[in-house]
Design a protein around this nucleic acid. Sequence first.
DNA 1: AGTATGACCTGATGGC
DNA 2: TGCCATCAGGTCATAC
Length: 260
Amino acid sequence: MPELPEVETIVRALAPRLRGQRIIGTRYWPSRVFRGEFPPDLSGARVLQVRRYGKFVVADMDRGFLGIHLGMTGKLLFDVAPQKHTRAVWDFAGLSLTLEDIRQFGRVLWGDELPEPIAVLGPDPLEVSREEFVSRAKQHRMPIKALLLNQHFLRGMGNIYTDELLFRAHLHPGCRTDELSKAALERAWIEMRVLLEEAIGRGGSSISDYVNTAGEKGTFQLEHRVYAREGEPCIVCGSPIQKIVLLQRGTHFCAQCQRR
DNA sequence: AGTATGACCTGATGGC
DNA sequence: TGCCATCAGGTCATAC
């Protein structure tokens, strides 16, 4: 479910309410999100800050780091009663934070340091410099969609925003990055930033599941130009939006505007 | 290095 | 109503 803009929206809601707060109780239900290892009981631990790291929500605590990935169907909600798919609850004085995750593709990590699977991810799409983006892209010879989805290349891009940015940059998702011109890669970098900022401004995209910490949907799905618009006219040229399978992912693009 | 496939999970949807 | 296949904002691991 959540990609960078959705996680950013969640973090912006979490940070001001949790910063400085002390956990007074933790409740964990056995599920795959823990991958066999419950975090410790964090009672007494204080939240120093909450930040986004790619698609992870990271809480820096006074005694370690809590990392939460929401997978496809994860939600972090304030003040709700535990139900069927509740996987964890962190109780604070006067509020509780609940992790719900129907499909259990999310994960909860804990460590004295930022856990390894989080720390090894690539730079943030909103922080990577244009020069670094271009030079690193040229070192790979895979379809640009594959590279953008690779969290070791950049942390935070997912299927929706990859399709949307490639449309905006007029790039076919199957273009190999080592064959793209510098100008084309720079276009991708620019469009990526503009797109992500716009999506954050609209509270992210809600296709079916995604809601913020208050249970509200984002509105950026109304601005999608290709994602989930198969057969509808391209807003630029009018030809029907195509949907193909690339890298085992549904891939949406305009065959007229996005040439190889 | 890259790609392809299946696995991991549950629920919604559409066809018959 | 039911049954079956297909699909879904994401990673992983394994095998060519």
